[in-house]
Design a protein around this nucleic acid. Structure first.
Lengths: 337, 337
DNA sequence: GAGGATTATGCACACGTTTGCATAAAAAAT
DNA sequence: ATTTTTTATGCAAACGTGTGCATAATCCTC
């Protein structure tokens, strides 16, 4: 009952040839006569011969597979990156092994182990928010497996990286807010151990300085989840010297911010401007539509995959770390003046 | 310079044993003395021996990998399903090979081929909107690879499936719309060759009949993209006998519908009620927040993966097709009365 | 027509495992 | 002391492929 797929050996037996001849015939080796080559290839075609990739992998110790670790799948930005990685990998004939750390350190460690055990050629990773220990990433490098970080890079590891131009994105956005008359601009960010947040904060501060606006501690908060938003934003609105603009670390926080601000009786953007980061689906369905900084996740995915594949195939040979910056673009909608 | 990972053979040589003994010692075979077993296992531990999964796969012709084909990654529902699949697969020690058809028939065919070539143990698939030819799916079955469809099933193929209870979700939603006083309820659906859309339409119609409301052709439209929404909805609002409720095939269309309706000067929900389907992120950020039918994508993913794995491991032995229905829940927010 | 160059094919091994069978050594039974 | 049983190990083959080397067959050249 078991239907065994046809192998080179089967073809050899059927045609009364040796497996080596068949193997060479299939790959068009010059030392094989035109006659037998055609014979073999036709027979293979007819019997739907498919090379066993497992055997091939074993022999070359290369399985044409790259592993991906994302902190969260159900997320516009990360799924965009994933789509980019997927497209690039597919066009280069690489398979994609997917892992999801779910923002948990333990699962991230386990994912790395899983991918190394699966003998992937390289790994694309974006770090979980809760990762403070980097040993597992170092293990990848120690195993001579290529590693490229995207977006959430790991500061303690010497590896290639592809990141959005967070600094410039933040600078441009805050510059725009200031240009349009906002003078008390708040920054709702993440924990400062994440380079992503830190870089944006620097862009934010530099833009303030450019406009001779004060950098106030009380207007810089860790607020990167909707739960935190519900708590932090009302407090800020209650103060006598309330912000007249919110620059948020992601679109979700911005959207909740918008709701809270409206519910508190302020008009957007007349009283308060709001700007998000990512430029995902939700920016177009809020009322008013959300101004946001486009991170070009799809492009980041493609770029990261391309860099990794170039490393794997020895096209990229730079000794040190390669860093790619994906440009960011401010997309102005109705939530800012 | 090349650091080759340590193998059973290496251990054997180092300990002056045969590879077979080492192999048995590692797996705790009873015919191996306690003494050598400990010796081997300790040596393996010290030298960080990792079994080569490629070799194992070749031997057993089983690579503990399942393939997934989704029509679109950047989509709340599908990424939710993916997350569910991922979690279930991981807990059962299966790897995930991911493909993205991007709603294109050709890429779907290619994805199937890719996965079969990779010798996956099974495939989870959701059909692209543009797929009308089913031969590639039949190939999976002919190759004796397990196949489970989720959500967008393929009507022409005899395979296991896990789907949302679309009929009941639609019925419940439309029933609720009617209960709350709507009498001219429009259905913005997909092409009727998709079972998903067809089942919902039947639920929609049955709910209308229950309330003795007429089923009008002009209130049933194909409108499953935001682009179509921009075109179709204004036309419907312009008619003298305009709908007083829109039941939409997904949240995106519902959100755009909401915008268009508001922009046309109608109040939501006082003049017109709007209901979406999926219950994704955006339902909470529109104004008013969107009533929607929760499809429980994550659960669907887990269920589909579990079913597939049960098939692979011979736990599920039913001869015919197994169909699982994932319950749907109406989540009432402010876009309906 | 004998030697050399060319062409086409096969043998054997390798990749890292697992496993049926044989076997050596030790222990037990007669 | 010899046979039988037990225990622990090794040999060899297998999974499906690719490749260096040997070799058989053909052709050319003088």
């Amino acid at each position: 009952m078991e239907k065994r797929p046809i192998t080179l050996k089967d073809i050899a037996k059927a045609l009364d040839l040796s497996t080596s001849t068949v193997s060479r015939a299939m790959r068009g080796h010059p030392a094989i006569s035109e006659e037998t080559r055609k014979l073999v290839q036709q027979y293979a075609e007819e019997h739907k011969y498919k090379p066993n990739t497992l055997a091939l992998s074993l022999r070359t110790n290369k399985n044409n597979t790259i592993g991906v670790i994302v902190p969260e799948i159900v997320h516009f930005f990360f799924s965009s990156v994933l789509a980019g990685i997927q497209d690039e990998a597919e066009s280069e004939n690489y398979h994609l092994l997917m892992c999801n750390s779910n923002e948990m350190y333990e699962r991230e460690v386990k994912s790395v182990q899983t991918l190394l055990d699966a003998r992937v050629c390289g790994i694309l990773a974006s770090m979980s928010k809760n990762t403070l220990e980097y040993r597992h990433f170092q293990n990848i490098i120690d195993d001579d497996v290529h590693l490229v970080f995207f977006d959430r890079i790991c500061p303690g590891i010497n590896a290639d990286k592809v990141v959005a131009d967070d600094y410039r994105g933040a600078f441009t956005a805050v510059d725009y807010l200031a240009e349009t008359g906002c003078s008390r601009i708040a920054f709702l960010g993440s924990d400062s151990h994440l380079p992503i947040s830190n870089n944006r904060r620097m862009g934010y501060e530099d833009a303030l300085r450019k406009h001779k606006l004060p950098v106030e501690k009380k207007w810089i908060k860790v607020c990167d989840t909707t739960a935190l938003a519900q708590q932090v934003i009302p407090e800020m609105l209650d103060e006598e010297n309330r912000p007249d603009a919110f620059f948020c670390i992601n679109d979700e926080v911005a959207a909740y911010c918008l709701q809270i601000v409206k519910a508190s009786g302020f008009r957007v953007p007349e009283d308060i401007s709001i700007c998000g980061f990512t430029n995902g689906y939700i920016t177009e369905v809020t009322d008013p539509a959300l101004t946001s900084v486009d991170q070009h996740g799809y492009e980041m995915g493609r770029e990261a995959a391309r860099l990794l594949i170039n490393r794997i195939e020895g096209v990229e040979t730079k000794k040190g770390v390669v860093s790619r910056l994906i440009k960011t673009d401010l997309v102005i909608r109705q939530s800012t003046r």
